[in-house]
Write a protein that binds this DNA or RNA. Sequence first.
DNA 1: AATCCCAACAACCGCGTCTCA
DNA 2: ATGAGACGCGGTTGTTGGGAT
Length: 374
Amino acid sequence: MGRAPCCDKANVKKGPWSPEEDAKLKGYIEQYGTGSNWIALPQKSGLKRCGKSCRLRWLNYLRPNIKHGGFSEEEDNIICSLYISIGSRWSVIAAQLPGRTDNDIKNYWNTRLKKKLLGRRKESNMNRFSTMGAKDANGIEDNSYSQSLSSSALERLQLHMQLQTLQKPLSNFYNNPALWPKLHPLQEKMIRSLQYSLNENPSPLWQHDFPSPQPGQGQKVNFCEPGATGAIIPEGFAKISNTKANELDNSLHFTPSSDNSMAFVTGNNLMDSSSTYDPKADVMEQPNVLGVEVSAFQSELDDFLNNKTMVFVPQEDQVAGFDCLREINSSKDGVIWWSNDFDRKSSTSNSWDSTSVLQTDQPMFQDYELCYNL
DNA sequence: AATCCCAACAACCGCGTCTCA
DNA sequence: ATGAGACGCGGTTGTTGGGAT
């Protein structure tokens, strides 16, 4: 038994909207608003359309300040970066691009960007796999790796590979705050309130005035902090301490790296075996911060992809900084993927979480080939 | 000129989530 | 606590226009 139709399918018009219909819908909404009821709107406005169709038409086409086409290179980069990180959460991606709709971005990705980035690569991969295939530990050829990956995950991994090579070290995204997702006003408010609740000086993400931490000394801060390099962590790449989150009101902790180039670590971040937790200071001490430190992650990823032994075995609740490297947790055929624990419930609030699980010592892709430019 | 093919975009559909009575 | 209705999202399909044959 299916669900009841949202409207009388026999009496609603389908297909492209006429200028008259557009004018009618636009005029009605501008005068009366949507009334928080799209289902009833067509009847009230005199349109012979499904409420959902009206909503879509308004959101994707008629509402003010909508941009169509003409995606800039910066927008391309943002879309790629976010797609790699969070996948096809088009509404979240659209929230970072004012004037763009999820539908528009989705279409743009499917028809242009994806091909631009992956088209030649797919050919290359097909040739490689068809002629040689991957080899397992016994040297037996096995194409199951690629076949066992979801297309989305594969795309994201491929794209990440490209960006990794293109961006040393991913400078485009990580060192360019303009490309980072904007904080939702509510998120800003939340962070501010957390800071005040801890009686510490405000040092929000959107400010660059935080003092540099002292090397080797764990410090507790309210939010991820630019180290000496000035790098700050985009919202969503921060993760609260797993063990102390409740006590600490989601505050974050960092320890500067030995060269003071990075100052970010939390209880949930990717840790190597030398990490220690200082219960008094409630700080995770770690000589080499991995979690979101870009070059460290790259090295990690290189090792990973080159089938070297991982330097750590993360707990289930530990995370890495890159969402692109997670999705599938099914290890049925020995291929372990990354789980994407993006909280779908938050998808409507423009927030995104980048926690991930990296748990494998299995060989993965070793394909670093770079075929194209953005 | 006619036909085919394909890219681009608009719109639809199904389903999960949310809201509210 | 529960269920119905509405909303929002993402995948898919349909339409159109331009270029190639």
